[in-house]
Write a protein that binds this DNA or RNA. Structure first.
Lengths: 123, 123
DNA sequence: CAGTGTCGATTACGCGTGTAATCGTTAGCT
DNA sequence: AGCTAACGATTACACGCGTAATCGACACTG
């Protein structure tokens, strides 16, 4: 089951801190980034539970939550879908696009070069 | 106004062929890729008109359509949004992700290397 | 000129999503 | 024991989207 945009904001909190977190913790962590009511966060937690993207275990009167879905899988699925839809499923055209369009930062260029060199050395 | 996934399938047809196209042309072009009824395509055309993503001009009893929105802008908006949400807004981490994950193709690597070299030569 | 086919326009409808408010239950306080 | 506060669960609701069917106006055919 797909994790929606809003839901992913909640997942990010859980991914950042793999320990168990209460709803209150999560609401607090989101407070900085998202302008949501507590009730909204609760709803999202419930939807994520239904989707089996997170798990909850009782801690007295409340629940503690943790991620089940892997961030890497989510990131990959989202990214691959974009590449497929817009770039023929390949990475290079995306790099080319940003190379022309928004100008890659020095940092980006350096990192990408390092990656490529590494791959060249491997093979 | 955002162009939805389904709508973008229609836009792709118009982007591929910048000349004016009738609804019938578009339905025909989509037939290979998408399993949609004619009515569905008509709906999408109307929604795109409302969003001003396309324009239509009368040709006797029917309309001929053309894209107004630019493919590059669409691709860029979608891509940037993904990079922002998942990769801190930068391209390199995405390349790194695919480098580890699904293995970049030879072709990808070669193309990216060429791009980087080109950028290095410029500056 | 009446019928029929063809367009675009209008209407439909269930589902996911974003965003919450409200309800019911239980734990703790007085 | 009764009241209140705090949780999670349930319910709400508008909107966009995917996917069409239906309607109304015209044009062509016989």
């Amino acid at each position: 089951m797909r994790i929606s945009e809003a839901e992913s904001r909640v997942m990010e909190i859980l991914w950042r801190k793999p320990s168990l977190q209460s709803a209150e913790d999560i609401v607090a962590a989101l407070a900085g980034e998202q302008d949501w009511q507590e009730a909204t966060v609760k709803t999202l937690l419930n939807r994520l539970l239904k989707k089996k993207a997170i798990a909850a275990e009782r801690d007295g009167r409340r629940y503690l939550y943790r991620a089940i879905a892997k961030r890497g899988d989510y990131v990959h699925a989202e990214s691959k879908s974009l590449l497929d839809r817009l770039y023929g499923g390949r990475v290079a055209p995306l790099v080319a696009h940003f190379s022309e369009r928004s100008k890659l930062s020095k940092k980006d260029i350096a990192e990408i070069r390092a990656l490529i060199e590494e791959l060249d050395n491997e093979s």
